[in-house]
């Protein structure tokens, strides 16, 4: 519903693709690692999200290859996806900076 912030599963998925193109299973592993095991994206959920992000132009199919006789696509961020992720990362970082600043202020006065 909210357009203002990127929802967490989307944020994790975009983050998983920020440094390199990845295939489906690698994305699942990255999401789990980035979230420190808190979020486990299942196969159906992952492909639902990939379809949506492809439709929104935030990611693209980077490569379609056949590995060991099996089809494998790798996905990558588009320019738009990179911009959205950068904006969201900056927003989160600004909030974190402010939280740390206020905590320090609280520590001084306490």
């Amino acid at each position: 519903m909210s357009n203002r912030v990127v929802q967490e599963p989307t944020l994790l998925l975009l983050t998983a693709l920020a440094d390199a193109p990845r295939h489906g299973y690698a994305i699942m592993q990255e999401v789990q690692m980035i979230s420190q095991g808190r979020v486990k994206m299942r196969t159906g959920t992952l492909y639902g999200a990939l379809d949506r992000l492809l439709g929104q132009g935030l990611i693209e199919v980077h490569e379609e290859a056949v590995v060991d006789g099996r089809a494998r696509r790798t996905y990558a961020l588009t320019k738009g996806g990179r911009a959205v992720l950068a904006e969201e990362a900056e927003r989160l970082a600004a909030t974190a900076r402010e939280a740390v600043r206020r905590l320090n202020l609280g520590g001084v006065t306490a």
Binding site: R42, T43, G44, D51, R52, Q56
Partner: peptide, 19 residues
């Protein structure tokens, strides 16, 4: 995992996936 996959498949059929 299988239930999640089945749910995605049904969503695709019913046109209620997130895209």
């Amino acid at each position: 995992e299988a239930a999640d996959l089945a749910a995605h498949a049904l969503r695709m059929r019913l046109h209620v996936s997130s895209d």
